[in-house]
Nucleic acid binder design. Structure first.
Lengths: 117, 117
DNA sequence: TAGCTTTACAAGCGTAAGCTTGTACAAGTC
DNA sequence: GACTTGTACAAGCTTACGCTTGTAAAGCTA
């Protein structure tokens, strides 16, 4: 059997951990609408290029970024869907935050069979 | 001047970091509806009482728990509002997750002045 | 080919996180 | 008072994190 020393966290852990750093949130802000190369991302920090590359790695491993290679450059952009664990967490622990809205919607549209079986 | 060596993280960082641990999320599940004493929380883990106490400390410092003392016991419960940073983050990076619902609501109720000034 | 650009990989350092054991302290019970 | 219960504080250990410097690899360009 393979000895797994310490494989990276998965699921909600990875996403939440990745988001718990201000530098990384700033990176997400940069790429949430535009697709940017690593270099341009790094240029907007006072950190070294390598440090930013590591942050990008964390975000990528958490599934928060998509990578597209173009020549020597790597272009990154936010994968919104990967925030699903955050949404789930919110709806679990603060149902009002989403639920009140949902309820209002369902009240307004009295046929809500919009749920998967 | 006071020397601040490394004061604990504040705002979104503290909340997200606190939530990024499965043990702590489990604690929140336990106290999200019921107010429980530290001992009963600790009893549902295989960790030591002290370890759980430390997790509670992290959650408390992040503002996620309220503490009420009753005799020698300390009763904890979830402070839902403290999840606001998570909600903010979600609405910043995944506006659809909340916004689509909001939009539907506003379409259905064409005058929604339900916002604080 | 050589040289340049863009980016990641690697090693090392200091600090923080998460855990354990040991202890202290406050509040009830006898 | 002495004992028990409920809980936090403290020290110490191991591992992870965030950063730096150094280097290598992949792709352009001349």
């Amino acid at each position: 059997m393979a000895e797994r020393k310490q494989l990276p966290p998965e699921g909600p852990d990875a996403v939440l951990r990745a988001l718990a750093d201000p530098h990384r949130r700033q990176i997400l802000r940069l790429v949430q609408h535009a697709e940017l190369p690593a270099g341009r991302i790094a240029a907007s920090f006072t950190l070294t290029q390598q440090a930013v590359s590591q942050h990008i790695g964390v975000l990528r491993q958490a599934g928060l970024l998509t990578e597209r290679r173009e020549g020597t450059r790597r272009l990154y952009t936010l994968r919104h869907e990967s925030l699903q664990p955050v949404r789930d967490l919110l709806s679990e622990f603060w149902p009002d935050a989403l639920g009140r809205l949902r309820q209002a919607v369902e009240t307004a549209h009295p046929r809500p069979p919009e749920r998967k079986p």
